[in-house]
């Protein structure tokens, strides 16, 4: 028996909607409860949420290796911001060019298709050998990781534009290539480009940690690594929680920027 779905779902939603707000809190509560239960047996290997929280507060007040917890967060974020900025400045125009011009696509596009399947983490040893373990090498690593999704999405965004929009542009006086590119192609591709930037951000967060864990004197990856070296489990877990918080903050920020930049894209 076929029924009209939307009718049912509104009645259903009205009845059960309150659950949808309560359930997330319940499940998070459950997670913390399980953590408590699991951790109580051996505080040295699996500290309680309390211990980790206290450790984080302590880390925020006293410097470790020259930075407080917030300071380490800042160091990691700065690395991400610089590399991501560079990747956007270089990646978006490059992707747009590959998408828009057949000539560029034929030459550079192929190179990208070759490099793309190699996971970012596989590049790290090469980067360390070439550029050492200083700040420069970290920035380059993160930059490389962020560049790929940005180029690929910019390119895809341009390729996927409905021909209808191009016809609209042509019928309404956008007579030069530049006019079409600026007033039709770029805005039409913007949501896809932005999705690439979002992917790039999570890639960058991942790689910054990996890079910091290999060699660094500051940053969240350094904290975790230091914790591991001295078998300080609560330090490792503090670092992990801090990364979670950082990731969530960055996601909120990107969403905010995206909503400002693409107010017409209601899927966000």
């Amino acid at each position: 028996m076929r029924i009209k779905k939307e009718k049912i779902s509104t009645e259903y939603k009205m009845k059960y909607s309150i659950w949808y707000h309560v359930l997330p809190f319940l499940s998070i509560g459950l997670l913390i409860a399980v953590w408590y239960l699991g951790s109580s047996s051996n505080p040295m290997i699996f500290p309680t949420p309390n211990t980790v929280l206290r450790r984080m507060i302590e880390l925020s007040q006293n410097k470790l290796s020259g930075y407080t917890l917030i300071g380490h967060m800042g160091v990691s974020l700065l690395r991400v911001a610089v590399s991501l900025g560079l990747a956007i400045i270089i990646g978006v125009p490059l992707g747009v060019l590959i998408g828009w011009s057949r000539g560029v696509r034929a030459t550079i596009g192929a190179v990208f298709e070759c490099i793309r399947p190699i996971p970012m983490l596989a590049w790290i040893p090469l980067m360390v050998m070439w550029f050492g373990i200083g700040e420069k090498s970290k920035i380059i690593m993160i930059f490389m990781a962020a560049l790929m999704p940005i180029v690929v999405n910019s390119y895809t965004g341009i390729k996927m534009i409905s021909p209808l929009y191009l016809d609209v542009g042509k019928m309404f006086n956008a007579s030069t290539e530049w006019q079409l590119l600026r007033s039709i192609v770029l805005p039409a591709a913007l949501p896809t480009i932005f999705a690439g930037i979002r992917n790039a951000t999570s890639m960058a967060l991942m790689v910054v940690l990996a890079a910091e864990m290999i060699a660094a004197r500051a940053g969240l990856g350094f904290l975790i690594n230091r914790g591991m070296e001295v078998f300080d489990v609560s330090l490792v877990m503090s670092g992990m929680v801090a990364i979670g918080v950082t990731g969530a903050l960055v996601a909120v920020l990107t969403n905010f920027i995206e909503r400002k930049l693409c107010p017409w894209n209601r899927s966000i």
């Binding site: 209808l164 929009y165 016809d167 609209v168 042509k170 019928m171 309404f172 006086n173 007579s175 039709i184 805005p187 039409a188 913007l190 693409c262 017409w264 894209n265």
Partner: peptide, 19 residues
């Protein structure tokens, strides 16, 4: 080539979603 003397109302409206 596309001529501004001709106006067009498109079947799928062709409104630009970002405007």
């Amino acid at each position: 080539k596309p001529n501004p003397q001709m106006g067009m109302v498109f079947q799928k409206t062709g409104l630009l979603p970002w405007l």
